[in-house]
Nucleic acid binder design. Structure first.
Length: 200
DNA sequence: ACACCGATTATCT
DNA sequence: GATAATCGGTGTA
């Protein structure tokens, strides 16, 4: 397992990056607790030209200015009055690209995730949504703008190859984005059952 | 299995 | 004042 350096996220093709993140491990050490999960669903948000992006048309506000910074930091924002959503800022400074992490397969720190999500929540539901995984991993407002590096929030490449199919589909919950709502910027990986056992 | 809907509030206009 | 990159509960089949 090798840590993915912040510089990895300087690549300017955010759609390709969203695909590359599938199968990587997302790790957090928050409140002294280590948690880890395999990334199985992402979405690319292509900045100023993407009607689904918060930065569409070059919009820059207190919330979105973080996306204009150099790639390799977290963009965490509050959604629907209830949930935190975790994104990776990508591309060079001035280009507001980001990747939303939408689902994980829990790997380590499962007791902690279960505690944070509530004891009634089924294992399969721990991190299968963007608002759920931030809660399980302990990610919140205070992590907005944090550099992705070992010890806080970071990604790792794993030795496991991605087996099974990765499909590209339209993104979720962005009907307001008109024609851009149809772009295949969402990546979903459904590992084969035997492969899944190895991942956990 | 799938559709519908209410919760709850920071952020932007 | 309206909106929102969601979630979980309820209802019907």
């Amino acid at each position: 397992m090798s840590v993915i350096p912040a510089a990895f996220f300087l690549q300017t093709d955010v759609v390709s990056l969203a695909n590359q993140l599938i199968g990587c491990r997302l790790n957090t050490i928050i409140d002294g607790k280590f948690c880890s999960g395999t990334v199985i669903e992402t979405e690319a948000y292509a900045g100023e030209t993407d009607k689904a992006s918060h930065a569409f048309g070059g919009r820059k506000s207190a919330r979105t200015s973080i996306m204009y910074k150099e790639g390799g930091i977290a963009y965490v924002y509050f959604c629907y009055g209830m949930h935190y959503l975790f994104n990776v800022v990508t591309a060079v400074e001035g280009v507001p690209h980001a990747i939303l992490i939408r689902a994980l397969l829990p790997v380590e720190g499962i007791e902690t995730m279960q505690y944070r999500r509530g004891s009634k929540v089924k294992f399969s539901q721990l991190t299968n949504g963007p608002g759920k995984l931030t809660k399980a991993m302990g990610i919140g407002k205070s992590h907005n703008g944090l550099t992705l590096e070992r010890g806080h929030i970071w990604f790792e490449e794993t030795s496991e190859k991605r087996k099974g199919e990765i499909v590209a589909t339209p993104r979720i919950g962005i009907d307001y984005a008109e024609e851009d709502a149809l772009l295949p910027y969402r990546f979903v990986w459904t590992p084969s059952k035997s492969h899944k056992e190895k991942l956990i």
